[in-house]
């Protein structure tokens, strides 16, 4: 007699869910034999309105941990509407997460306005606080950039997480919570299994390096000895070494000419190669007051040796 037997079928959600507000109607028709005459009867029409499921999905888009250094850092997230009604989502970024070796500071939240998966300052729209996305159609998604400030003084390899939370603007709460009349087309809205809220974790690892400078001097007097007497020459040796997991950019080494001495013209050298004293295309410059060597980008694990000489005034 068509009585449903098995129960407890899992609530599998279709890939393309029925839009919220749609009314499902069903009508039965019957025919029977009445003394040789076929008669027809139509049942009442039953109606079920499909309500709005609030079901955001948040995903971290960075592969693994994002390598960061003190200064700005940008994490990428995807917010998707897995519900069946158009919905905007409130965004929250929590930078203080248990287990963090350091906490970042939230600078701003931006939308990938030009859909190129890269944060473009001045082009990608900053969401003013409190950050709310545009209304996303069912199945639609949006790439969000979280712009953070990474603090100074963090150790190489230190890790930090931020929690990125998207909440349905209509409401969130325990799964099954109903927001009467708040759904699309007069339907109710109901928090899905996610509770109308989704969280993604963005991970960062500090890749910092330190520069160590070690300076030594060798004295040669006019008499073949090493006495620091007037007329003696001091040859200074500065070893600059970079350790850590990141390269160092724009590394410039300067050193003052000590009082009572004068720079020996043409003595400046980098790794044994002489540098001209004038400011020109090579990395070095020497004036009566100081020497300057621009090492530019220095890879981690490498070291450079700068040498120059001064004469102890007579």
């Amino acid at each position: 007699m068509g009585i449903a037997g098995a129960i407890g079928v899992s609530a599998a959600k279709a890939a393309d869910p029925t839009p919220a507000g749609i009314v499902i109607e069903s009508t039965a028709q019957a025919s029977y034999d009445d003394g040789g005459i076929t008669r027809n009867v139509t049942s009442n029409t039953v109606q079920v309105r499909v309500d709005e499921l609030l079901d955001p999905v948040a995903t971290a888009l960075d592969a693994g941990s994002l390598e960061v250094r003190p200064g700005p850092a940008v994490l990428s997230f995807l917010v998707s509407n897995a519900g069946n009604g158009p919905e905007a989502f409130n965004l929250e970024v929590v930078t203080s997460v248990a287990g963090n070796a350091f906490d970042t500071t939230l600078d701003s939240i931006a939308v990938d306005t030009n859909s190129n998966a890269t944060y473009d300052p001045g082009i990608d729209q900053i969401l003013s606080a409190p950050a709310v996305t545009e209304i996303l159609a069912p199945g639609a998604s949006l790439t969000i950039f979280v712009i953070l400030s990474v603090p100074d003084g963090i150790e190489d390899g230190a890790q930090s997480e931020v929690s990125f939370v998207a909440r349905a603007a209509t409401g969130n709460g325990a799964p099954g919570n109903v927001f009467a009349g708040a759904g699309e087309n007069g339907s109710d809205a109901i928090a899905g299994l996610s509770g109308g809220e989704a969280t993604a974790i963005g991970q960062m690892v500090a890749t910092t390096s330190i520069v160590a400078l070690q300076k030594s001097g060798t004295v040669a007097d006019p008499f073949g000895g090493s006495a620091a007497v007037p007329g003696a020459t001091i040859t200074y040796n500065i070893a600059a070494s970079v350790t850590g997991s990141a390269q160092i950019d724009d590394l410039v080494i300067t050193d003052q000419i000590p009082p009572g001495t004068q720079y020996v013209a043409g003595s400046l050298a980098l790794d044994g190669t002489p540098l001209s004293d004038v400011a020109d295309s090579d990395a070095g410059e020497a004036t009566p007051d100081a020497i300057t060597v621009n090492l530019g980008t220095v890879a981690s694990g490498s070291s450079n040796i700068i040498t120059f000489a001064v004469l102890i005034a007579e």
């Binding site: 609530a11 499902i24 309105r49 499909v50 709005e52």
Partner: peptide, 12 residues
């Protein structure tokens, strides 16, 4: 309250 994935019984 009915949402996608819910199980309904239609009957007569």
């Amino acid at each position: 309250v009915v949402v996608p994935g819910d199980r309904l019984i239609f009957g007569t």
